[in-house]
Design a protein around this nucleic acid. Structure first.
Lengths: 192, 192, 192, 192
DNA sequence: AATGAATGAGGGTTCATTCAT
DNA sequence: CATGAATGAACCCTCATTCAT
């Protein structure tokens, strides 16, 4: 599956062949098909792998009860723009699958359930942080969380596609600035 | 090219064949290849078509000197979430190309140059609106514009992929809320 | 048909398309098909054209009663290696058709009937020249004529294909030497 | 490659498709392309195969030091018109490639280098046979060898194309007669 | 369990031919 | 008469999948 990711990143999803993947992995075509059944299943497994790895990292932070909610939010943002997550080949895989997702209900389901999980966890944290009401322009923690998730996806796209390749520190600041704008009372908590 | 978009939306980019496109368009394979030269060129032309249509609509608003900068910003947001722009098959095309863009320098260039154009125009408008300094958490109009562009992309993804399919009015409010958060002094200008 | 010959010479028979030919001729595809009916007919017409042009030139010499038989033979050889006949693009056309002739009975018939005509005329001339019997190693004028025809074809191939491209004067000498070897008594008649 | 030869002989080079070849060979298209890479490479390999087979047979005779030069020449002629070499489908392949050679430098190179090799070997033999000088009408062993090679090609064409299909024994006699004519002093050596 | 040679359906593209203008 | 845009069958080639070893 790691080899699959490298191939998708290098050739694009539509140009990635089983031969590319098996060569990259140093395995025979036979054994790969034996284990995964088909190319489609392998791709699905790869998507799940990436997705679950991300969700696991995210939830580990979101549910770390030893930290204050504000601190956890700060660390989630740091995680979203950490070197490990924003490796260009990993981002390329996300976008490759998203690009095909509209016509592949299965891809859609996997991506969506992951997004929901993370956004819900974030919404809960924001609620726990206290007064959303009356302070920011939007009063719904769930809305802020969803918007944050959307912004992260958009910033990743910037990091991947623009020729100047927005550095991850800059992207992180932009994400934090979004949260500061939405949660003015807690802006200072989000400083590093 | 309209037929191409419908096919990409329906089958995904990698599963779209020339036969699909020519059937959808009601043309023969011969004439499509005669006009476009190859499948690749046709896809590129389709990407340019979508891109330039968007950029044209955007610039028409951004450079409308009869309106105040704040009003123009408001209309740009309305444009970004208008029914015409957020048609699901059109969004699917954007994401399909973005998904392949990392391994296709040509796709990347087309997408990036378009993004740059729009973000620069927005940055100029924000500057014209007046005091960015001191009011918001971020002082760089260009940064706000870029972040806005990223957010729009992310919200589009939400609209396209989540099963509940965020309605465009909700997405628009989220985008406006981002701007209100970044430009508190001008928040009221952005109300509808 | 001239355009067809140039195309065959340039691209080879199998790579010559109707589009090549019509472009070269400066005509539309429609009018060429109207006149010739099909590509196959056009090629056949071109083969006939080349063949008959050659046969006409040959017979004009062979039947010129004002010259002695020996002189006529000498001039036939000169004709076979004249600049006009050994133009490389013309030779290429001969060989292109010969290359396909085995599987195209019609090509075969056209080529063969032409060869027969010429070889018979030459055989008659040789007979008229007198004593074949007893002098040369072969006593059959027809055999000498046929062998001569074969040699000419082979020398043309040399002129066309070998990198050093045997000059036509050299090839002509070789053909004459063959005749001198077969008709020793008349060798001197064949000097220029 | 044997199947390729049969197809070229049957359909002609330009009408031979991969489907013809793979059917004839009883193989799938996939495996043929896997081994040869492309149709073009397969055709080239076939040309080389025919060419090298011929050259090997020829050189084995030409360099057989146990036989006198004259005997070797006699056997070379016999070889050139042996049943194995003058099989109609093999001849058809030669001419098919020659027909395309003018516009295919690679074909030309392969054919020419083979011809050179054989003609040089024959020239050496003729020289070894002794007095060329003063006896025949031509004094250059190399010229005789080249002319012989040309004649063989021409006689093959006769065998392939004329409706009466010159029998190989007749063609052989004609080739021998050429040599007898050029090398009168050694004519008797060339009798069978 | 593991291999990779072999399969063949399906892909993009070409091009002889047609036909509305 | 003449055009050239349009057709679609047939080409070569790729590649997911199978299966004898």
């Amino acid at each position: 599956m790691e080899a699959t990711m490298r191939c998708i990143s290098r050739h694009g999803l539509s140009a990635t062949t089983m031969a590319h993947i098996t060569n990259e992995a140093g395995l025979s075509t036979g054994i790969v098909n034996l284990h995964f059944g088909s190319k489609d299943t392998l791709l699905l497994a790869t998507l799940k792998y990436v997705t679950e790895e991300y969700a696991a990292g995210w939830m580990a932070i979101a549910e770390n009860l030893q930290l204050s909610p504000a601190e956890r939010v700060r660390r989630l943002v740091a995680f979203d723009f950490s070197a490990k997550i924003t490796r260009r080949d990993k981002l390329a895989v996300w976008f490759a699958f998203w690009g095909e997702a509209k016509s592949r209900p299965l891809y859609q389901k996997i991506c969506a359930s992951n997004d929901d999980l993370c956004a819900s966890a974030l919404a809960k944290l924001i609620t726990e942080m206290g007064v959303v009401q009356g302070n920011g322009p939007e009063t719904d923690a769930q809305a802020i969380a969803s918007t944050y998730a959307a912004l992260v996806d958009g910033l990743w796209l910037d990091m991947l596609l623009t020729p100047r390749q927005v550095p991850r520190q800059v992207a992180e600041q932009r994400a934090l600035n979004f949260l500061r704008g939405q949660l003015p009372a807690y802006g200072e908590c989000l400083n590093e």
